[in-house]
Design a protein around this nucleic acid. Structure first.
Lengths: 158, 158
DNA sequence: ACTTACTTGACTAAAATAGTCGGGTATTGG
DNA sequence: CCAATACCCGACTATTTTAGTCAAGTAAGT
């Protein structure tokens, strides 16, 4: 099982994309500023997200990324899977050959835990997260901080 | 969040201890053979398990380890915590200072997931695992394999 | 005494994480 | 056309963690 900054960044970036998407695609530079994630690292993550067909890209000036489908049909588990191999907690990737070809003593426990985590993350969509009150207020704070930082009022398109 | 071989080994070893404990303490050498875990590595893990007061040790010949209390009052979450810092999935360890002192966009999600995993692992005791049918049959297989392995050396040795 | 078995700490190879860097390529507004 | 924008891609790297090994103890039973 791996659940580290990589997966967290991916979900955070996808959520940012969901919040700040109206008609124009969202550039990685914007996400980088709002979410304090390095631009180069974001590029790496979005390469995987695009390969998994969770986002589509638009090149050139004014370009950026869009969700490839509605935010209520993109689930957190899919985002994590895209960048973070899996949420499997078994050693044998569910195959049951954990102890020299045979199943190990605790295999069923880890198998059960993996299913538990997967169903939890697969039941929450990006749309669900956007609807949360705390997410809304944090997103607003981030936009305001960015405006102060940039000083020049950048025509709040959203 | 970390859930790797270290935590799995710890739970497996504790389960082995639960199964093979009658009156005499269980030596790490026995666990090492049955569960195919390196003896030196087990020593490292049991050092942590002892510090967390999950096991007690008996030194000298015939010595080994015992559960410090009944197997129905030792929970999987405690074993993992003992060797594997925590099952927390947030970046800020629940503090909420994930984005430069402020809370990050996805904090509540990871916080919720952490609680989910913790309650799952905290609801299963070693006694619960021992009672499982698959665990019983795997344990029996391991004992039989060990008997075969230990009886053979008389043939070609010396 | 001798052996067994726990105890401790230092050390290490390999892998993963969390990035950086430098060059591409497509697109578009002027 | 052209230069700026922003995605695209692969190689590189420092740091941390994992999954151990090794050596030198200490305590206790026969």
């Amino acid at each position: 099982m791996r659940l580290t900054t990589k997966g967290r960044y991916a979900v955070t970036a996808m959520l940012d994309l969901t919040i700040h998407c109206d008609d124009k695609p969202v550039s990685l530079a914007d996400i980088s500023q709002r979410q304090s994630i390095s631009l180069s690292y974001l590029e790496q993550l979005f390469s995987r997200l695009r390969q998994s067909e969770l986002v589509t890209s638009v090149r050139g000036p004014g370009g950026g990324y869009r969700l490839s489908r509605s935010s209520d049909s993109i689930y957190i588990a899919q985002v994590i899977d895209a960048v973070n191999e899996s949420v499997d907690t078994t050693n044998c990737k569910g195959k049951g050959d954990c102890q020299g070809g045979e199943i190990c003593l605790t295999h069923s426990l880890w198998d059960q835990l993996s299913q538990e985590i997967h169903s939890f993350l697969n039941a929450i969509s990006l749309a669900d997260l956007v609807a949360r009150r705390d997410v809304k207020s944090i997103a607003q704070r981030q936009v305001e901080q960015l405006l102060i930082l940039n000083e020049s009022p950048q025509a709040g398109a959203c």
